[in-house]
Amino acid sequence: MNIAEERIERLASLAREATAECHDDRAREYVRLARRLAERNRVSLPEQFKRFTCDACDSYLRPGKNARVRLQSGHVVLTCDCGEQKRHPYDS
Rank of each mutant, 00 (worst) to 15 (best):
P63D: 03
Y90M: 06
V76S: 04
R40G: 06
R68D: 01
I8W: 00
R7K: 13
V69M: 12
R26V: 14
D24Y: 12
L78M: 15
Q48Y: 12
A20Q: 12
S92Q: 05
R7G: 00
A38Q: 06
P63H: 05
R40I: 07
S73E: 12
S59G: 02
L14I: 06
D91R: 13
S59M: 07
L33G: 02
A15H: 01
P46W: 07
N2K: 12
S73D: 11
R36W: 03
I3H: 04
D55L: 11
H75C: 11
Y90N: 07
A56P: 00
P46R: 05
S13R: 15
I3W: 05
R68E: 10
C57Q: 08
L45E: 00
A18D: 07
R42V: 05
C80L: 04
R32C: 00
D91F: 13
R36V: 05
E39G: 09
K65N: 08
D58W: 11
S73L: 09
D24Q: 08
D58P: 03
A15Q: 06
A15G: 05
V69D: 01
V69K: 15
R68Y: 02
V69I: 14
D91T: 14
R7F: 05
R10G: 01
R26K: 13
E84V: 03
S13D: 11
C80H: 04
R68K: 15
D58A: 11
R62V: 14
N2W: 04
V69N: 03
E17R: 07
R16K: 13
R28T: 15
Y30E: 01
H88L: 13
R35E: 06
A56G: 07
D24H: 10
R40F: 00
F49N: 02
R36I: 04
S44K: 13
E9P: 00
R87C: 05
R51P: 01
C22W: 10
S92D: 08
L37N: 03
K50E: 11
E29T: 12
A38L: 06
T53R: 00
Q72I: 15
S44H: 08
E6M: 13
G74F: 03
P89V: 09
T79H: 04
A38C: 12
Y60W: 15
D25S: 14
K50W: 00
R36F: 00
N41G: 07
G64F: 01
C82P: 12
I3L: 07
A15F: 04
E47M: 09
M1T: 10
V43A: 03
G83F: 09
Q72M: 10
V69A: 10
E5C: 01
P46Y: 03
D91W: 07
S73M: 09
G64M: 06
Q48S: 13
L71N: 04
Q48L: 08
E84G: 03
E21P: 02
D24K: 04
T19F: 04
V69R: 14
